[in-house]
Amino acid sequence: MSLRTPKLRLGLLLLLTPMLLWLLLLIILPHVNMAIISLSERVSAGEYAFSLSNYAEFFTESLYWNTFLRTATMSILVTFLTLIIAFPVSYYIAKMLRGRTKGLVFALCLIPFWVSELVRTYGWMILLRETGVVSSSLQWLGLTDGPIEFLYNDAAIIVGLVYTSMLFMVVPLTTTLDSLDDSYIEAGYDLGGNGFTVMREVVIPHAMPGIVSGCIVVFMLTLGNYLTPALLGGKDSLWFTEQIFTQFITRFNWEQGSAFGILLLFLSSFIVWLGLKLSRQSFTRVMS
């Protein structure tokens, strides 16, 4: 449309205002504010001074940075496991199934997403606890004498986190794999490739945007998760978001909590940036 009258610019302003208000008041200013608070220290009642002490505290207290590193490595592990488990399933749905079955199986994959994370985690608690279904079944089968506690350890946390994240991996993977025309795979075989080389040189490069976007979302959700580690890991889950929660809600130490928040934000941005760099994908392309 080339009818660019002043009225059109008014339209742009009308569209821009809600967007900018939302962005400033709910996203940018709160985070800037948090960054400022993280850099301050309470001198006396109602008086604050600039200080790096909150960050110094993080690096000197081994519990804090141990938790931090542990959360980061476990999140990466969860992301990797989710990718490994989800890829064959997505491939099966996208390439081995046809028509109605494909749509149906894909919809089946989506069902757990529609159910609250709390419910899903609760399900795992019922399965894994000492008096739970798995333990009882093992006893009934005679494989073990007494009840076994499967809950409150790292494996339980990982199982729960992988489960919770699965959908955010399956959906982008299936969508990108579905967009790969069968003829490319056939051409790969026709030109003398085998299953492995076709997978590596045709399928995976095509699926890369989906892989990256799935990994980013899963990593973010895992890193920022509070519910699953808290419920499945119990008291010793040592997840960094729990530290943040403790500082803010239990100890009411907002300065320290803000510093933790900023650190977690830096960590996640850094790893997402690294992932994008290594896979040579662009953020806007991967995210939409």
Binding site: M220, G224, Y226, F248, W254, S258, G261, T284, M287, S288
Partner: peptide
Amino acid sequence: YILMLMPLVIPGVILGVSILVF
């Protein structure tokens, strides 16, 4: 547009506390 996408990569807990503090 990139700023609009930011909430997707901010952990929910952080988003919550930042708004709480602000």
